[in-house]
Design a binder for these strands. Structure first.
Lengths: 181, 181
DNA sequence: ACCTGAACACCGTTCAAGT
DNA sequence: ACCTGAACACCGTTCAAGT
């Protein structure tokens, strides 16, 4: 379903502005985003029926980036190393930080949200399976559990202390998975 | 600093009402809580200068309960078992669910909030040290990291599937700490 | 001292009116 | 088709007026 040219431009601009605004402040208001994108609130709501769907659209891009990273990493590194490196990226992408965990939180029952979440799950499953097959982690780990724990990483600020914490947490969780470093 | 009798009653009633309201819906509005407690909004704000401080006051009780549980558990069980059982309580007390993780999130820089958080940290440290001393977990674990990971548990609903997940997650994290079951 | 409740600025969201 | 922006109900918070 193609949009009229001006509508398409508006949509793109809104998404771009929203991405910046939400990165700077996860609580940025809808009206302020509309204003920054030079559209009326009605236009914003025409493209995204509510706040959640806007936030979700912003994240979808980031999630896709993470998902497409998997084959590249697996091609270049051993499964466990690939897995670790992917998790580093997961932590980084928290620029648009924990806004996403709030969304995922609300996703409990919403199927629409689970779809958005799915590429992440698939990515983790792929990496986990590769590691299980290579014997680098123990069998039987649960990808959803893992992602839930790792959601914590999005709440850690990217300071020096924060980075140290991220690597400690990753080490702990990987050890919990039966990996040996 | 003692309060006048009516003020004290109001404060208690507000806290009780807020506890219920926030358990039912973490987003319960300040005005609705005031109304349910039969006070004007101004009275609510006289006792708790903003939303955060009200939420925090509600949690403080729960946190204290968890903290005072530690010696009891350590007296009755081996350190590792005590630690595990304490974590089970931690997960349960998520009745007033993840509202608290949002607060802890905002606590980053706020010293006042860190104080509230402190009893939790102390509890974890006590349990961890006991386990390290008994050789049941590896040395050098970080209590703050641990609590951060376990904050995840507050986001898990208390359904059957949720409980299974909690025990899987706990097992993973404990294994990450070097515990053997 | 403490309480009340109208009022403020702002929020997410809607919708009649325009092009 | 799509956009605009005034308007609605509600939010957290404040403050003049009461007891």
């Amino acid at each position: 379903m193609n949009l009229r040219l001006d509508a398409q431009e508006n949509r793109d601009r809104i998404l771009e502005v929203a991405r910046e605004a939400l990165s700077a402040d996860p609580q940025a208001s809808m009206n302020s985003i509309a204003k920054a994108a030079n559209v009326g609130p009605g236009t914003l709501y025409r493209h995204f029926p509510n706040r959640e769907s806007l936030v979700l659209a912003v994240y979808r891009n980031e999630i896709d980036k993470l998902a497409t990273l998997v084959p590249t990493l697996l091609a270049r590194y051993s499964p466990l190393t690939a897995f670790r490196k992917w998790c580093d990226q997961l932590a980084k992408f928290g620029r648009v930080k924990h806004g996403i965990s709030d969304v995922l939180d609300a996703a409990k029952s919403d199927k629409n949200l689970k779809e958005t979440y799915l590429p992440m799950l698939t990515a983790v499953r792929t990496l986990m399976t590769a590691c299980e097959d290579s014997g680098e982690i123990a069998k039987g780990a649960n990808a959803e559990d893992f992602l839930m724990l790792l959601g914590t990483l999005w709440r850690i600020p990217p300071t020096a202390a924060g980075k140290a914490r991220v690597s400690r947490l990753l080490a702990l969780v990987f050890r919990g998975l039966g990996a040996k470093f």
